[in-house]
Design a binder for these strands. Structure first.
Lengths: 110, 110
DNA sequence: CGGCATACCTCGAATGTCGACATATTATAT
DNA sequence: ATATAATATGTCGACATTCGAGGTATGCCG
C-alpha cells in the first residue's frame, strides 16, 4: 500500500508513457507534464521515476530517442514508439483493463 | 511494467485483503482462495506475497489475528478488521478509484 | 503408505518508486 | 545587472513490495 500521495504509480508508469506516445513523439519533460494535465493533476511523475522509465523502455526496444529542438527552442530528447512499442501499448492496456476489472470485482463482492 | 502474469498486484494486495475482510473474519489461506475465486482466476496471490502482507497489516494495526479452528477442522489464524482497518479499507478504495480513473483518462486521451 | 490439499511461515533476488541532488540553458522579474 | 523560476536532462541511495523457492506440519483419500 502506497504511503504518500505520489507513491501510486504502482507499475503503470511504463504503460502511461507508451499511451502518451501513441499520439506522437514527445520529450521527457513534456510527457511528465502531459500525464499530469490529462490526469487532472491526480498523477504527478517525478523526474526520479520518469527518466529511469524512459531508459527502461528504450533499453527494451519499445521506444527510440532522437535529439531535437523543443517548442521552447531548447535541445530535448524526443521519444517515439517502435513497432514493438505500439504492440506493447496495446497489450499492456488490455492487461491493465483485465487487472483493474478483477480488482473492482473484489471491491464490490469482497 | 510487470513481467509475468502473476506480477501484477502492484501495491493493491493490502487493499484487496482489507476489502475481503469487510465481509467477516477469514484465515490467510482462505483469503487467497477467495481473491482468486472472486476475481475469476485473474488474480492469484502466492504465499510469499500473502503472509508478508498480512503481517504488515497487523503490524500497522489494521487487522488483528486470533487462532481458531477452520472449516476443515484445522488450526488457523483468523484475521479481522480493526476500526482503523475499516477506515483504511474505505480510504484506500477511494484512492484506488481516483487513481484508476486518472489512468483511464490517459489511456483514452493519451 | 504415498500423494495431495490445507495451513502456516521465511528468505533472497529482482524490480520500481521516490526524494534529493547535480547540471545547463533561457526567460522573466527585480 | 542579478536573482529566480521554468525548461530539460540525468544519477543516486533508501525503501517497499512481489515473487518463487524452500521449509514445517496435519489430515484425508486411495
Amino acid at each position: 500500500m502506497p504511503k504518500n500521495k505520489q507513491d501510486l504509480l504502482q507499475g503503470t508508469l511504463d504503460l502511461l508513457i507508451l499511451r502518451i506516445l501513441l499520439s506522437g513523439a514527445r520529450h521527457g519533460y513534456d510527457i511528465a507534464k502531459r500525464i499530469q494535465m490529462v490526469s487532472d493533476n491526480v498523477i504527478q511523475v517525478g523526474q526520479g521515476s520518469l527518466y529511469p522509465s524512459l531508459h527502461r523502455l528504450e533499453r527494451r526496444g519499445y521506444i527510440k530517442a532522437k535529439w531535437d529542438i523543443s517548442e521552447t527552442g531548447r535541445r530535448a530528447k524526443f521519444y517515439l514508439l517502435t513497432p514493438e512499442g505500439k504492440t506493447k501499448a496495446s497489450v499492456e492496456k488490455n492487461r491493465w483493463l483485465e487487472f483493474t476489472s478483477a480488482v473492482n470485482l473484489i471491491l464490490k463482492n469482497g
